Computed example of a mutant assay.
Amino acid sequence: MIVYFTFDPRPDLKEGLLQDFPTIEFIFHNNIDHTVLKEAEVVVTYGEDIEAQQIWLAEKLKWIMVASAGIEKMPQKEIAERGIVVSNVRGIHKVPMAESVLAHILSYKRELAWIYEQEQKAEWNRKSKATELHGSTALILGPGAIGSEIGRLLQAFGVHTIGCNRSGNKADYMDDMISFSALQKTLPSADIVISVLPSTPDTQYLLKSEHFEAMKGSTLFLNFGRGDLVSTDVLIHALNAGEIAHAVLDVYEEEPLPADHPFWQMNTVTVSPHVSSHSSRYLERSLEIFKPNLKKWLEGDTELINKMDIIRGY
């Protein structure tokens, strides 16, 4: 059986795979070789390099392991038509992403950017306008693995957490839960609004102008999920109109963000280049999910960890 990685992991990680599964033929590339793809039963990919026609070319392909949480850039229709099993690495992003979110919130609250600016100018200026995180309320859109970890860290700082998802069902480390239908009426109570939602039919452009109009003028908004949660025009209007105070963005409608994009010049926006999940342990954690799944696969068990509904997107 051929397991085809469309990226090239670190040597130590490859060696671990070869030792643990000596009967498997692993092939590692930094691109897609159609000759190999045609013979592979399992493909491991970041999810952005497989096109629709390649799904039909991959005659023996039965399982795609996506080393990412999102699958919105994959040819979902063709994969579903072929009946190919899809799994992802949901859950491995929670530590680096939660730390990134918390770092940005604390940086904003404690005015770290201002402090660094004074340092560069060698200016002893104590007129900081820092505020406290303690006692605030955070509304977290998408309280799954990542959102719950964010909630856990925020609660340690004395923050009241409100989770928001499609169902409103209970989630870990959320003091309260609401459904999407109750979002607009809950937003006025939030000091911080954080989204880690994936891109699905239910979440695309979920936030509209009326949602930002409902927020406090002092609200800190952070989008670390997907860029199609809110249109760029709606967000720029909300910032320029003072409907919210600041936006920290790690994802965008268009990526990479063009050099002439307005966000770069706006002092009410912090631009992060989609790096919140980056970690030296990213692939290590991905393989900790892949290896047990590969063992199950070899035993004929297709009920894999993080098995996805390719059409629903999660």
Rank of each mutant, 00 (worst) to 15 (best):
H274K: 04
P258N: 04
H246Q: 12
W297V: 03
H274Y: 04
V251R: 04
W264E: 01
L283R: 09
I289A: 09
L283W: 13
S277E: 06
S279Q: 04
P292H: 09
L294M: 12
A245E: 15
P256K: 01
S280Q: 14
L283F: 14
W264L: 06
V275M: 10
S279M: 03
K291L: 03
L249W: 07
H261M: 09
S276A: 11
H246K: 11
H246I: 08
L287R: 10
W264Q: 04
P273Q: 00
H246M: 15
H274M: 01
R281V: 11
S272F: 09
E254D: 14
I289V: 12
S272M: 15
L249V: 08
R281N: 09
L257S: 02
R281C: 11
L298P: 14
T270P: 10
N293D: 06
N293T: 06
H274R: 01
P292Q: 07
L294N: 08
V248L: 03
A259D: 14
P292T: 05
W297F: 15
N293C: 01
H261Q: 08
N293K: 10
P292E: 00
T270D: 05
K291I: 06
E253I: 14
N267D: 15
E254G: 05
T270N: 06
Y252W: 01
H261P: 07
K291R: 11
L287G: 03
K295Y: 12
S286Y: 13
E253Y: 08
M266G: 09
S277Y: 12
K295Q: 13
W264Y: 07
V251I: 12
T270C: 03
